[in-house]
Nucleic acid binder design. Structure first.
Length: 457
RNA sequence: GGCUAGGUGGCAGAGUGGUUAUGCAGCGGCCUGCAAAGCCGUGUACCUCGGUUCGACUCCGGGCCUAGCCUCCA
């Protein structure tokens, strides 16, 4: 079965056939680096990183571009507030983004273009749009002329009239059509800016992705991805710009959009003040737990974030790591069904279900040889999702280090309890167990002696 | 108002025109001095009303409800 992808353009699941199987092109809209990423920002990073891995299994060369928006009014504002140049802000938060995403098991894309490094590309593209009468200059701005692009609205399934009717924002007087959007805008002396044929200014938001996509991947690309909230206007505008500038029928052949992370069913967003910062979450939870939660729902569905889902993911991973612990693992191929699930429009819940079934088979297996084989397959399969790659002993041990408890005292109490048990003073033994339980310490009597661990949160 | 997506067992969350999702929690059992962990077993769910069909949770139509986009946003 070839790879299936749900295409926003057609609202259908389609077989993925790249333009050039020797060179598959994927572009995902990356972060605007003006503060720390929240878990909602992490979802597309995790999902499209997974897509990149899935594609890379099938095709010899996949070029994955994920941009960094490093000039933007919010960055400008933060920089102005701190009294520093914008690159101080953008570098700081780009570094934080890389660090946080790495903790979630997200790899680096093939290329990571930055807007400020593509100003000449952007200017050249705008010039071409003006030449082709797709854009016009007005009061120092350059605007895209949506009237010149008959397909405008085809991705988001809107027409220009609806856009006017639904407009919630006052239309700038210099716009010819209310739907026209800014390609280039003037900068004041204090604002960052670049010289251009239209004076000193800076690019609008949409144009950078079009310019960078063309520069690194080509005029027509295979897949363009991003969050659902980018469908309109961002991606709609990208299509208009790119197709007008390059005179093509197509910009991206497949469009993929991830659903939102919600909190109590409401979209996580900065304006609602319900964001959970990845950097903060990582202080409490292993990155892999966050990743598991993000993969537990299908990427196109909303994902309601909760403490409960974190506990559940932690419990599941603890069990899986526990099963791998102590088994010598050899590299092997992943399970076919896991691959099939992932290749079916990234069906991660089904893939995880299969992984859990493999884990049960492993638990059932009696012969050591078979167990080792199953364990290896389990690890390889989970690896396709970026899970279960840590050393099981380390994972399980790290659960204990999290608590700041006097280990010597615990060890002494355990010794005393074991002495009581030997003399069959079970009342005293149970008393010690209870005392430790109150401190959140669970005792486990096993063949290797008594182990302790921190109670589940 | 326009457009879009979705309503599945206690919770989370896939999927299918007639057969077990899976996870977490719960319950019963094995094990244990007692526990814990682990393992075994267990739960006849699919918003509503019509229609199509031998048969629909699954297809079609109406309704109700929820979320999202239409403004920066992953």
């Amino acid at each position: 079965m070839p790879i299936q992808i749900y295409n926003t353009l057609t609202r259908k699941k389609e077989t993925f056939e790249p333009l050039d199987p020797e060179r598959v092109t994927l572009y995902a809209c990356g972060p605007t680096v003006y503060n720390y990423a929240h878990i909602g920002n992490a979802r597309p990073a995790v999902i499209f990183d997974l897509l990149y891995r899935v594609l890379s299994r099938r095709f010899p060369k996949v070029i994955y571009a994920r941009n960094i928006t490093d000039v933007d009014d919010k960055i400008n504002q933060t920089a102005a507030d701190e009294g520093v140049p914008i690159d101080v802000i953008s570098r700081r938060y780009a570094a934080a983004y890389h660090e946080d995403m790495a903790a979630l098991g997200v790899g680096r894309p093939t290329v990571e273009p930055r807007a400020t490094e593509h100003i000449p590309h952007i200017i050249a593209m705008i010039e071409r749009l003006i030449e082709r009468d797709c854009a016009y200059e007005a009061e120092g701005h350059v605007l895209f002329n949506v009237e010149q692009f008959s397909d405008y609205g085809s991705l988001s399934r809107r027409n220009r009239r609806e856009l006017i009717a639904g407009a919630r924002v006052e239309v700038a007087p210099y716009k010819r059509h209310p739907g026209d959007f800014v390609l280039w805008k003037p900068s004041t002396a204090e604002q960052p800016g670049w010289d251009s044929p239209w004076g000193r200014g800076r690019p609008g938001w949409h144009i950078e992705c079009s310019a960078m996509s063309a520069a690194h991947l080509g005029e027509v690309i295979d897949i363009h991805a991003g969050g659902q909230d980018l469908v309109f206007p961002h991606h709609e505008n990208e299509i208009a710009q790119s197709r007008c500038a390059h005179q093509t029928d197509t910009f991206a052949r497949y469009w993929m959009h991830n659903g939102f992370v919600t909190v109590e069913k409401r979209k996580m967003s900065k304006s609602l003040g319900n964001t959970l910062i990845v950097h903060e979450l990582l202080k409490q939870w292993p990155g892999e737990v966050l990743r598991y939660v993000l993969l537990s729902a299908h990427y196109r569905q909303p994902l309601d974030w909760s403490e409960k889902s974190l506990h559940q993911a932690q419990a599941t991973l603890d069990r899986l790591y526990g099963q791998l612990d102590g088994i010598d693992l050899e590299a092997t191929d992943p399970d076919d069904e896991v691959i099939a699930a992932l290749e079916d429009d990234l069906n991660t819940p089904t893939a995880l279900a299969r992984i859990n079934t493999l884990a049960r088979e492993l638990a059932h297996s009696e012969q050591p040889g078979l167990a080792a084989e199953l364990a290896a397959r389990l690890k390889a399969s989970a690896g396709c999702l970026g899970l279960l790659q840590r050393d099981p002993a380390d994972w399980l041990a790290s659960r204990q280090v999290e608590a700041e408890i006097d280990e010597t005292e615990i060890d002494e109490l355990i010794a005393e309890r074991n002495a009581a048990r030997r003399s069959r003073d079970f009342a005293r033994a149970d008393q010690i167990r209870d005392e430790l339980a109150e401190q959140g310490i669970l005792l486990e009597d096993g063949p290797e002696g008594t182990q302790w661990k921190v109670a589940a949160r």
